[in-house]
């Protein structure tokens, strides 16, 4: 039972990170119907930006309060990652909007190759490890010689995730910007006729997705303490799985899907085998898409002749 609770905590932590990335996939897919293949690598770039910002703040500028440093790192990572994602949309996707369906997909795969190889060339292929931060843990229960712990990191990850999701939900549900986004999602042409700046709305959607991916990237750095240029692909595919599982296009669905994928992965590793945890995640992706393509919270898609 103790093992179960410990894995539950770990799974929710990992799931929060997947959920944050998944929102970027689900929003972009909802608004322009495209799988933004480079999103996983945008996440990876954000871990590097966070790493560099943290190093600069702590070693050069001598910021001693780790929470203050992390707050600044989070903001820096969000700003720069958003700018990168905005540029990618502008350069690689916007000229292809309305073109045939495969073109943006290939362009996105190309961008994903560019991002991971750019980081490899600019920062080197080795793992980058930082000294562990926020190491203290709360012992929740120590029955039967097995300690169930909740670390500061995990608390931080859950608090930041919940807080940012609340802000984000408010933006989408209550502001004119969110209304424009929902309008574009339903019918882009009609939204344009009614005075919504569609291009700008799509750009902002990419920026918002990237900002949340940057949050995930910063939290990933804090949680694991190691980043690598090839870390974009697998979390990217898993987050996409989360978005599909929750029902693509649905924001609560993305978070729910992220939590489920995180929990499944952690429990699979704990009770079955660590080696096959990615196989489990990919199999779920395939099974969900085949038997339940609309996901848990999504609307079914009907094709008309």
């Amino acid at each position: 039972m103790e093992v179960f609770f410990q894995q539950l905590i770990n799974g929710v932590t990992l799931g929060s990170i997947y959920g944050l990335i998944a929102i970027g996939y689900t929003m972009v897919f909802g608004i322009i119907g495209m799988v933004n293949f480079s999103h996983g690598d945008v996440f990876m770039v954000s871990t590097f930006i966070a790493l560099i910002a943290l190093m600069v703040l702590t070693t050069w500028l001598g910021v001693s309060s780790i929470l203050l440093a992390l707050l600044i790192v989070l903001i820096i990572a969000m700003v720069f990652t958003s700018l990168i994602s905005w540029t990618i949309e502008r350069v690689a996707y916007r000229p292809l909007r309305g073109s045939f369906r495969l073109a943006p997909l290939i362009s996105a795969i190309g961008m994903s190759i560019v991002l991971s190889n750019f980081v490899q060339v600019a920062q080197g292929p080795r793992n980058k490890a930082i000294d562990p931060i926020l190491n203290s843990v709360f012992v929740l229960s120590a029955a039967g010689g097995y300690q169930v712990t909740l670390s500061y990191k995990q608390i931080l990850i859950m608090v930041v995730t919940v807080g940012l999701l609340a802000i984000f939900w408010w933006v989408v549900a209550k502001t004119p910007l969110g209304r424009a986004q929902r309008a574009c999602e339903q019918d882009r042409k009609m939204a344009a006729l009614l005075g919504v700046d569609v291009d700008r709305t799509i750009s902002i959607t990419f920026v918002m997705g990237a900002a949340l991916a940057a949050v995930a990237g910063t939290l990933y750095l804090v949680y694991y303490g190691v980043v690598n240029f090839s870390d974009g692909f697998t979390p990217g595919v898993k987050a996409f799985t989360a978005a599909v599982l929750g029902g693509i296009g649905s924001l609560p669905g993305a978070v729910l899907g992220g939590l489920l994928i995180g929990l499944i992965e952690v429990f699979w590793s704990a009770y079955f085998s660590v080696e096959y945890k990615d196989v489990a995640a990919f199999s779920i992706l395939a099974i969900v898409l085949i038997f339940m393509p609309q996901g848990i919270l999504g609307r079914p898609d009907v094709e008309k002749v």
Binding site: V91, A92, P95, L96, A103, P104, I106, S107, I109, G110, M111, S112, I113, V114, N117
Partner: peptide, 10 residues
């Protein structure tokens, strides 16, 4: 290679 993919598609 990746850059060429993007450029050719655009």
């Amino acid at each position: 290679f990746g850059f060429a993919m993007v450029v050719i598609m655009v």
